[in-house]
Design a binder for these strands. Structure first.
Lengths: 230, 230
DNA sequence: CCATTCATTTCGAGT
DNA sequence: ACTCGAAGTGAATGG
């Protein structure tokens, strides 16, 4: 990994065109040839970049030396024809470092986990609810959860972290299919998410689908309690 | 901006939990307190990070000194209660740099531009086509383009950079609404994108919606030509 | 300021 | 290899 602090301007040409005026920035060159151009603020997203696999070539200034350019970096993607051109005016820092391969990130608490928790505590949807199965298969893909309510009626549950209109459309398609099955019919729908967009709620309600807001911490808390009982 | 190359392990607790085992990485501390943890590969996305506004506090090793920890960095987000904890085992490089404010990126060639270009060259959809208006309003949101074909029939165009099933669903909803308007009825649909997924194409065709693949460079080229005429 | 939509999205899982 | 959906999505734009 090479770290360069430089006064530079940057041009990108690929799926779109973009330009960065002259300023002091961090140029980060990774082992796979990818380059990140970072400013001293903003988010984790660079101002501009070239994705791997890429190749960096450095050329001394040509005609643009008159404009103060010291050297020109050209970063070419090896699979597409995207190009990133960095016009370096002044190098303030330049160092290289051996990092080795990274063991990678371990995550916990995403949608899959939400589904697990709700399946485990399906009773939070109503008294007498019981789980039939998670990932209940249909012709167009698996429904997140199939359950039965206290009266034995079938319930199809679609789970999202953020519930928007697409999720309601998806659940609607599942319900249409499931309601053709005499073993299940009639199947009611539940749209469960940590956060449900108003538009999605309106559409769901209009179609007779119940909306449920999930509290991840509460579900996880119930988990802890039940864990303590053992 | 502070650049640190260090052997470290990292833990994040916030909307999810994540852990990075001990390895050598770049720790990038920005002026707004945000921290990025980068490996020597992958894309522009850091392995882990803390978004601004954030505050970094560094503490000498405590009980964990026995495990080889030299110092512990705690990065707290000032608006949420997200925390990033970096256990530093060895510092291989440490430098700070003044960058100043960045003038920011200038973009050109995104979806808005595609819509502009297609509206300008609506004739590429067929002989005699003419533009009624861009962002034609409906009760559930604006249609990208409303046009008339050579015979005077209304055409609703949905534009995407990448056309997938969601875009077809969206256009379907627009068409359903527009076809209730006696001034417009019957309204035909055109799904236009730089790249159309097979599934989306199938669904669109099934619903009588025409699919058109847009060539951005060609549209831009036509633009250049017409520009040269003036 | 909230809500929706786009993104050089990136990333991972499943087929 | 390809497709599809999720993301600690982030960022811009319109109401």
């Amino acid at each position: 990994m090479r770290l360069v602090i430089a006064r530079c301007s940057v041009d990108y040409a690929g799926r779109l065109s973009a330009h960065l005026p002259l300023a002091t920035r961090l140029l980060l060159v990774k082992a796979d040839g990818s380059v990140l151009v970072h400013s001293d603020g903003g988010s984790y997203k660079p101002l501009n970049w070239m994705s791997p696999p890429a190749r960096l070539t450095v050329a001394p200034a040509g005609e643009d030396a008159a404009e103060g350019v010291v050297e020109t970096w050209t970063v070419r993607n090896l699979k597409s024809d995207d190009r990133l051109v960095v016009s370096v005016h002044e190098v303030l820092h330049d160092s290289s470092h051996e990092l080795g391969v990274d063991p990678g990130l371990v995550k916990d608490g995403v949608e899959a986990h939400l589904q697990e928790l709700l399946a485990e505590h399906i009773g939070t949807l109503g008294d007498g609810y019981r789980l039939v199965r998670r990932e209940y298969p249909t012709a167009i893909g698996p429904v997140d959860i199939l359950a039965r309510d206290g009266g034995g009626g079938a319930i199809a549950v679609e789970i999202k972290r953020r519930g928007d209109i697409d999720g309601v459309e998806q659940l609607t398609r599942y319900l249409e299919l499931l309601n053709r099955d005499p073993q299940l019919r009639p199947v009611a729908g539940v749209f469960a998410a940590q956060e449900i967009k108003p538009q999605a709620r309106t559409l769901a309600t209009d179609r007779g689908i119940r909306c449920v807001t999930l509290d991840y911490d509460a579900l996880r808390g119930m988990d802890d309690v039940s864990a303590r009982l053992f």
